[in-house]
Design a binder for these strands. Structure first.
Lengths: 352, 352
DNA sequence: TTTAGCACTAAAAACCATTGAGTGCTAACA
DNA sequence: TGTTAGCACTCAATGGTTTTTAGTGCTAAA
């Protein structure tokens, strides 16, 4: 045990107080408001110790202490007790996910949406990386006079779809033939694998049908690797009121990060699976997020990745409440996706 | 002519200067930097006149003047000369829209994207109101073991699509039959009209096929009226640095409006068609947007609405540059959509 | 008709003293 | 021996005063 009981209780008190006020907390406040049974002087000593150990920080000599990232880390791992959700909260979550939505993207966005609403932080939702999916089925559908819809069903149950101009030179009967041909050739193959050398798979017979299938093949290919998987965010404005962003440049840089998204994607894809991951302050590599925490929960069913939901909030967020919430929502979402699909968890569409 | 030439030139100078600095501009500055050939005292007199006429305002007695909304309005309508885009700017725009994207939503987002990048303001993109569209074609497509895709092609060329769980009780042959049936019944009908009483159209024969088509019919119906048409925004962060948002609450309220979107939608749908609409300051009804201007350009081909692109920026935006840009982008977009479709401008998909 | 000159105004900046919330250390205490 | 009262000390925050600055409007002269 790294910390004795008294230190733990003091660290906890400092964190609770700091979370509530966002101001450095002094020994007097702890002594008077959290009756631990010690005088300010004693608490002062312990705080000095905790600071030496790296769990607390002091902005300047005559100020109180604020918890450091390792302080929070220790708190989350070894001190706090997760709250259980209130029946009302559960109710709200269940209600939202009980709706008859079965489109994958709607589902994950709904889940993220509710996270933002319940926690009052910013929530994120990202679709899955499809690189390692395999093709289960391809459908070509003629629409109106002049368009063709390409639909790809992946083995994780996600559907990608796109529409191209159909120039009419490819005779309608041939669409069926080409459709069958594509399925024969590509079914069971890995998305990335196809993407990198689609010509090797279809070029031979390509011209036997018509040179006009080239744009079709191109579009199909670009459907496989969606380069701009973007991150859906909800409740950005929840964060803007935070004192953490009151310094002039922080806000700008902060929103820059949120808008750029690249870095966020990186982070989100790193989460180890099936459980909640918490990145506190500098643990998340961006200087401008040093006062923020990102929590992610990667959705996975039977080893198939189905996207990630997450939260961004201030470092001083109410972990013992927020963590159970994201767990609950994530579990419910996963459950919903599982029962939605009939054999291996498939039951989604995906915007393309 | 409402204003004599001297007043015009002074008003123009004040606007140019204020646009550049966001500070009230004084007579001295104008006299020294814009050589109009008058002393500060003369300019001071004219400014007092312009203020009386409502074109300028004065924050307090010992400050310079800032242009009022009607000042800007007059400037846009009667003073400024639109700049022509540089070949480089045209190039950038053309390049983006030359890409082989033919999905409607991608196109309009690309266009909005480039607006934000070139102007450094926030751009918006909204899909069209579909209420007055009519059904041109409906397709039901079986996907994998257990899902059914519903596709609706509207008469403006936009495609709506959704996926539902297919419980297998409806025999596969019947899908075709039901598909044909739906087309017979609904083709040519107005979206809103169908939405309000779909049962009247299909209920009779509904149960003859299977009660299991009910969820299908429901989903089809909800596809018709997409209640959450959301606004795509790009470059929100461009605005955050503006001094206009430096007062404490403004920022929060401002982002609130952007996030709520309802009000924005309202505004955007009001634009008179086929041309650029400029809403300056209080012209746009939201107290918290009083220091901002919204410019919209509603896309329309052969009387079919295809969405709107727009810009949000500070009232003091560089109109003579920005207006030609949105015109150019809007025209290019419209052209692209026109040539994309073969007969009446159809060539898009739509995320559902 | 224009402009130089000047008194006047109000915000912003600079200055300065005071307050207050906190500390660390020491010596006394249970 | 661990705890605490007491106290000197630090430094940001507050608030009031003064100074500076950027502008004005008006008047009288060119």
């Amino acid at each position: 045990m790294l910390l004795d009981d008294r230190k733990k209780r003091i660290l906890e008190a400092v964190i609770e107080e700091y979370n509530a006020t966002a101001e450095p907390v002094g020994s007097g406040k702890i002594a008077s408001d959290y009756n631990l049974g010690f005088s300010p002087a004693t608490i002062r000593n312990e705080m000095a110790n905790l600071e030496e150990m790296g769990f607390l920080e002091q902005p300047h000599v005559s100020a109180g202490r604020i918890p450091s990232s390792s302080g929070y880390r220790f708190y989350i791992d070894s001190i706090m007790k997760e709250k259980t959700l209130s029946p009302k909260e559960k109710q709200i979550i269940d209600d939202v996910l009980k709706e008859d939505v079965i489109k994958f993207d709607s589902l994950i966005k709904e889940a993220s949406n509710i996270l933002a609403r319940i926690t009052n932080y910013t929530s994120i939702a990202v679709g899955p990386q499809m690189n390692n999916c395999t093709v289960e089925e391809i459908k070509l559908v003629k629409l109106g006079q002049d368009r063709l819809m390409i639909v790809i069903l992946a083995d994780n149950g996600i559907i990608k779809e796109s529409i191209i101009k159909y120039d009419g030179i490819l005779p309608e009967e041939n669409i069926q033939i080409f459709n069958t041909y594509l399925n024969q050739k590509l079914k069971g193959l890995n998305f990335e694998q196809i993407y990198e050398n689609i010509n090797a798979y279809v070029e031979d017979e390509l011209y036997n049908i018509s040179t006009n299938v080239i744009p079709l093949v191109n579009e199909l290919n670009s459907l496989l690797i969606d380069k701009n998987v973007d991150i859906h965010m909800e409740g950005t404005k929840n964060l803007l009121e935070l004192p953490e962003l009151k310094q002039t440049n922080t806000l700008k840089n902060f929103l820059n990060i949120l808008e750029t998204q690249d870095a966020l994607k990186e982070l989100i894809n790193n989460g180890y699976d099936g459980n909640v991951n918490v990145y506190i302050g500098q643990e998340n590599a961006f200087e401008d997020l040093k006062d923020f925490t990102i929590i992610t929960y990667k959705q996975k069913i039977n080893d198939k990745e189905l996207g990630t939901i997450g939260l961004i909030g201030p470092k001083r967020m109410d972990y013992k409440k927020v963590i159970p919430i994201i767990k609950y929502v994530g579990d419910a979402l996963q459950e919903k996706m599982k029962q939605g699909g009939s054999f291996d968890g498939r039951e989604q569409s995906d915007e393309s």
